[in-house]
Amino acid sequence: MPPDAPRIAAVVVTFNRIGLLRALLERLEQVPELAEILVVDNASTDGTGGWLAGLGGRVHARTLDENGGGARGFHDGLAWAVERGADLVWLMDDDGLPDAGCLPRLLEEPDLDFWGPLVVDEADLRQLVFPIRLPGGTRVVHQLADVQRAATAGRLDDIVIPFNGVLVTRELVERIGLPRAEYFIWGDDHEYRLRAEAAGARIATVVDAQVRHPAVGSLGTPMMFGRTTYNHSPSDLKHYCMARNNLLNLREYRGWPHALAFVAKTVWFYTFTRPSPRRLGMSLRAMYDGLRGDFTGHRRYLR
């Protein structure tokens, strides 16, 4: 690397997916732009910690004392990378696999603070794993071709899917702080993007840089006769955290009208779109827990 090149550290958060982690680290070891690869193990029980302890080279690992979810993993991992002198930090879960040219393509965009690739379905590269609401309107797209048509000079400004191959500058971390560790999962990444946006960060998605990722369920499920969508997950743990954390994010960054609209959407979705009194009760309990500052309720859904 040139002597004036930024020091780049990858931060990988993992939990009980040693097979996926092996494949990811093999890929990252082939990325010459990386100074080091920092792995935060969320107290895995599948042998991940022992396997990581035997690695060397650019890979360094920490095993947490308990499973703190992706939120604590990225909180601790980002702090660790900055402490070790990283100028740029490349954040990712263990279940994504960046294409070989992903990081070099991201580095071609020098004027950004918080930016990342598209996340595409590993089983169908034409599909997005996480739907994107296009800037300047309400249209939500699910296909790669739609994003490519909407891009300008190869990117979508003001949009990013955090913590799936996203780059963040040291300067931005020092300005806005670290992700909220108490969120556990689902919403911590979105909160960090909203915080960056509020601080005036330059944000973008580079549409010809890609990370391949497994499908995650019925995100963006149509509701209210197709006029809007809802992020339904079959996982009780993910849904509880989403309901709690999303309500708090909306209240903090969009105000009470948006927060109450989310409550109304949740009630509609589990009353009419996919009727489930149990899931509706869970949703309302999660929202109540968040409003009173209780971030322990997700533990009842841990396995």
Rank of each mutant, 00 (worst) to 15 (best):
A23I: 07
C102R: 12
R62C: 00
L103Q: 05
G68E: 03
V13G: 04
T45W: 11
L25Y: 06
W51Q: 12
Q30V: 10
L107K: 08
D111Q: 11
L64A: 03
R27M: 12
G70M: 00
Q30A: 15
E66Q: 12
P32S: 12
V40F: 00
T14I: 04
L103A: 01
D113N: 04
A23F: 09
P98Q: 13
A81S: 07
A100G: 13
E26C: 11
A43M: 09
V39H: 03
G56C: 08
L28G: 05
I37S: 02
V31W: 01
G101D: 15
L21N: 05
R105I: 15
W80Y: 02
R27N: 09
V31C: 02
A61D: 07
G68T: 02
L52K: 02
G50H: 09
R22E: 13
F74I: 04
G50K: 08
A35S: 15
L55V: 07
V89Q: 05
R84C: 02
E26H: 09
A81C: 00
G70D: 05
A35I: 10
E29P: 04
L21E: 03
H75P: 07
D93I: 06
A43Y: 13
I37K: 01
D113E: 04
D94L: 03
N16H: 09
R17I: 13
R105K: 14
G56M: 12
D87T: 05
D95V: 03
H60F: 13
P110H: 02
L20Q: 14
R105Y: 11
M92D: 05
F15C: 13
D87V: 05
G73M: 00
C102I: 14
L91W: 01
C102S: 15
A86F: 06
D113A: 08
V39F: 02
V89Y: 04
R22S: 14
C102T: 14
L28I: 00
G49K: 07
I37E: 03
L112Y: 06
A86Y: 04
R62I: 01
W90V: 03
L91E: 03
G70L: 01
P104D: 06
V59Y: 14
G77V: 01
W115P: 15
L52Y: 04
I37N: 00
V89M: 08
C102H: 13
T63S: 12
A79N: 02
R58D: 05
L21A: 07
D41Y: 01
L55C: 08
P104N: 07
P32F: 10
L78D: 06
D87N: 09
E29Q: 13
E36K: 11
R17V: 15
L106E: 01
R58Y: 08
D94S: 06
R105D: 11
G101L: 15
L64I: 02
D46W: 01
L20E: 15
G56A: 10
G70Q: 00
I18Y: 10
M92T: 05
V39W: 01
L103E: 01
R84D: 03
I37P: 03
V12T: 05
L78Y: 08
T48C: 08
G77W: 01
F114L: 15
T48F: 06
N42K: 10
V40C: 02
G68F: 04
T45H: 15
R84L: 07
L97T: 14
F74L: 00
A71S: 07
D111P: 12
T45C: 15
N67W: 09
L55Y: 14
W90M: 03
L97I: 11
F114W: 12
G73D: 03
D65L: 12
G85T: 07
R58H: 08
G57Q: 09
V59P: 10
